[in-house]
Design a protein around this nucleic acid. Structure first.
Lengths: 145, 145
DNA sequence: CTTTGTGCAAACGATTTGCAGGATG
DNA sequence: CATCCTGCAAATCGTTTGCACAAAG
């Protein structure tokens, strides 16, 4: 079986392996996500891409993200109301949400040790988990959001 | 200072304390949320309310929820893309999201012990956290979503 | 060449807003 | 009785969809 690799070249093999076409738009979206750590929205990705090479529409960014999610190269992050944000870091990790500026920072998986899902209430079977921390991030002056 | 209490009567005092008016709509929305544990959407709350007493509009449910959130009686749960779901349980707790039926179940705060936020990366100061578990819930036959 | 993807614009659905009439304190 | 809230409809905004043209394999 084909395992999705990380890194800029991974897109080509991974998309091909799934029978999806390798297009400059998909590569650009993935490259953009790889290069940033701020978990951008579709809007932000589009602006960033069009700054370099004004060849992309919002609908294409959506569809590229969909394709990249399908092959497991990208994940959606639901921490802010109203908008989806995206992340090229697919290994399990936790998130930190800054209450002042809205920034999302990654926290290493090992941050909290391993939590046990073996004893859950009433017939629930857990297969994955994630911790979300809220607070302030110091990077920001507290001016945004 | 006035502390928000839980329970059906809490709405009256809590709203008054904040200078907000006590209206039947706000009470009905809160009562509805108190009575259910399924973290309903606005749509679901509205349907449920109008089944009993067809006197409420979607806009009013939104604004009632806003008021109830402002006074700390209700919180918004962001676990499903596209819709906000609401919870009258405001004490800290964790959530379990069923991948099959989309149901959200509460997990007790003590489920995972106390996680330490004292050592976080690069100047991050954490003030709160929550664990989100995904899996299957057994209650569902796996027919929905 | 055949099929899938892009890009534009229209469609959609959740949430917000504007405003006139109604209820609250 | 002055102010805040409701409820309706229109406006917004993120996301999806339809379709003709372009590009990938």
């Amino acid at each position: 079986m084909v395992q999705a690799r990380v890194g800029a070249e991974a897109v080509v093999q991974t998309l091909k392996a799934r029978g999806l076409r390798v297009t400059p738009q998909r590569c650009a979206v993935y490259a953009n996500l790889l290069r940033r750590t701020d978990h951008p929205t579709v809007e932000q990705i589009l602006n960033d891409l069009n700054r370099e090479l004004p060849v992309s529409s919002k609908a294409t960014v959506y569809s590229s993200l969909q394709a990249l999610r399908d092959v497991g190269l990208v994940r959606e992050v639901l921490l802010q109301e109203g908008v989806s944000r995206y992340d090229a870091k697919v290994e399990p990790h936790h998130h930190f949400l800054c209450d002042r500026c809205g920034a999302i920072h990654d926290l290493p998986w090992a941050q909290f040790g391993e939590l046990s899902l073996s004893v859950l209430p009433q017939g629930l079977r857990g297969v994955a988990y994630e911790v979300t921390v809220r607070g302030t991030c110091g990077d920001c002056g507290g001016m945004e959001a």
